[in-house]
Design a protein around this nucleic acid. Structure first.
Ligand SMILES: [Mn+2]
Ligand SMILES: [Mn+2]
Ligand SMILES: [Zn+2]
Ligand SMILES: [Zn+2]
Lengths: 137, 137
DNA sequence: AAGTACTTTATAATTATTCTAAACTACTTG
DNA sequence: CAAGTAGTTTAGAATAATTATAAAGTACTT
């Protein structure tokens, strides 16, 4: 049985119309057991190659942003030329292998900040991004 | 007395010729008491406005990259559309105010990771980027 | 069935950055 | 110093990710 009905329902609940394009993208993003990281280009390739579908690049961007806004995706704060997204929306940090641009999840419990400094006056902490850069040895 | 001779010497030591453009950029970057954060665009504006000089944008890029390579500048790993650089080259973390794109130094002693997780097999940790995102309240 | 708001799409625009190749300049060497 | 050369600057073109535009298409309401 497909997840189509589930996605349709979820999208409607979110105020997003369950279009053919959005449902395809849901399949790609949310029907795997494991979560994963991707760029817009990655996602576009998967859609074309795995699904034999072609969705306009603008729609892929629109959809990813819409899903992010609804909390179904997270954007990873990493300083590269392109944006990375994550189907794992729980709070967690990452290893990042610069050489092959690979992101690897770190369980929230495995890394903790001690002595979190007080933010500057008049500002409050929203969230903390931790990237542990690694390289193959 | 100007720092020109010092910069000239420093550049020569580094194998970089002390050109008029590089010396100007040294003045802007390294003659202030306080360190600071900047984008290429910021730097270019300072050169034009404060020094009445005009240096080709390509040269500004070239120079910043050369200085970074020599360790006189650090690039801050922040996920924005433009790159940020830092004249503070010591190991430290940052507060980042997304609203006004402001970076604020955090002393290295004020924030520490506890339980740094083991990197994936065959990889070793190079460095750790910590960004504490803040917003005005 | 018709109307409306939302969505998709191709394409253009934007923006940061890098590339190119010609002109220029700092340094070395005779 | 004069000449050679290797490094540097520069304007402008190229690249690449992303966003904007606006027309055509679709989902939902009535
Ligand atoms: Mn960039
Ligand atoms: Mn970007
Ligand atoms: Zn992740
Ligand atoms: Zn700093």
């Amino acid at each position: 049985m497909s997840n189509l009905n589930i996605y349709t329902e979820k999208l409607r609940e979110s105020g997003l119309r369950p279009t053919r394009q959005r449902l395809k993208i849901c399949e790609v993003l949310f029907s795997t057991k494991e979560t994963f990281h991707f760029t817009i280009n990655d996602l576009n390739k998967i859609i074309e190659e795995k699904l034999g579908e072609k969705i306009s690049l603008a729609t892929v961007y629109n959809t990813v942003h819409a899903f992010k806004k609804k909390g179904y995706l997270k954007e990873i704060a990493i300083a590269t030329d392109k944006s990375y997204f994550d189907t794992n929306t729980s709070t967690h940090s990452h290893f990042f292998d610069i050489k092959n641009s690979e992101l690897i999840d770190i369980d929230i419990n495995q890394v903790d900040l001690k002595n979190i400094p007080n933010p500057p006056a008049g500002k409050k902490i929203k969230n903390i991004d931790i990237i542990i850069n690694v390289e193959s040895e």
